[in-house]
Lab assay of single mutants.
Amino acid sequence: MTVRVDGVDYEFSSLEEAVRFALKMAKSKGAEVQLHNGTFHVE
């Protein structure tokens, strides 16, 4: 599972870890999280 934040990809071994990271980053940026074909994008 890959989480992309500001064009940088972060790899996670589990969906749970990836979701937690994506939500944490989105909250800190006041951004939204989108899921596309198994890849999260924080914008």
Score class of each variant (00 low, 15 high):
Met1Asn: 06
Met1Trp: 15
Thr2Ser: 06
Thr2Glu: 01
Thr2Leu: 09
Thr2Arg: 11
Thr2Val: 11
Thr2Tyr: 12
Thr2Ile: 11
Val3Gly: 00
Val3Thr: 01
Arg4Phe: 04
Arg4Tyr: 05
Val5Phe: 07
Val5Ile: 09
Val5Glu: 00
Val5Lys: 01
Val5Pro: 00
Asp6Ala: 06
Asp6Pro: 00
Asp6Asn: 11
Gly7Ala: 02
Gly7Trp: 03
Gly7His: 03
Gly7Cys: 15
Gly7Pro: 00
Val8Gly: 01
Val8Asp: 02
Val8Arg: 08
Asp9Pro: 05
Asp9Val: 10
Asp9Asn: 10
Tyr10Cys: 10
Tyr10Thr: 01
Tyr10His: 04
Glu11Gln: 13
Phe12Tyr: 01
Ser13His: 10
Ser13Glu: 10
Ser13Asn: 09
Ser14Trp: 02
Ser14Glu: 03
Ser14Leu: 02
Ser14Cys: 14
Ser14Asp: 06
Leu15Thr: 08
Leu15Glu: 04
Leu15Ser: 05
Leu15Pro: 05
Leu15Arg: 10
Glu16Trp: 12
Glu16Thr: 07
Glu17Ala: 09
Glu17Cys: 15
Glu17Ser: 04
Glu17Tyr: 02
Ala18Met: 04
Ala18His: 00
Ala18Thr: 01
Val19Phe: 14
Val19Gly: 01
Val19Ala: 06
Val19Pro: 00
Arg20Leu: 09
Arg20Ile: 09
Phe21Gly: 01
Phe21Arg: 01
Ala22Ser: 01
Ala22Asp: 00
Leu23Ala: 09
Leu23Thr: 12
Met25Arg: 02
Met25Asp: 01
Met25Cys: 15
Met25Gly: 01
Met25Asn: 02
Met25Ser: 03
Ala26Met: 08
Ala26Ser: 06
Ala26Glu: 04
Ala26Trp: 06
Ala26Leu: 08
Ala26Cys: 11
Lys27Glu: 13
Lys27His: 10
Lys27Gln: 12
Lys27Asp: 09
Lys27Phe: 10
Lys29Tyr: 11
Lys29Gln: 10
Gly30Glu: 05
Gly30Phe: 06
Gly30Tyr: 07
Gly30Lys: 08
Gly30Val: 05
Ala31Trp: 13
Ala31Leu: 12
Ala31Ser: 08
Ala31Ile: 11
Ala31Glu: 05
Ala31His: 10
Glu32Lys: 13
Glu32Gly: 08
Glu32Asn: 13
Glu32Thr: 14
Glu32Trp: 13
Val33Ser: 03
Val33Thr: 02
Val33Gln: 04
Gln34Leu: 12
Gln34Met: 12
Gln34Phe: 15
Leu35Asn: 04
Leu35Val: 09
Leu35Ser: 05
Leu35Tyr: 15
His36Pro: 04
His36Leu: 13
His36Ala: 06
His36Glu: 05
Gly38Gln: 04
Gly38Met: 08
Thr39Glu: 13
Thr39Gln: 13
Phe40Glu: 13
Phe40Gln: 13
Phe40Thr: 11
Phe40Ala: 12
Phe40Arg: 11
Val42Ser: 09
Val42Gly: 11
Glu43Gln: 10
Glu43Tyr: 12
Glu43Phe: 12
Glu43Asn: 10
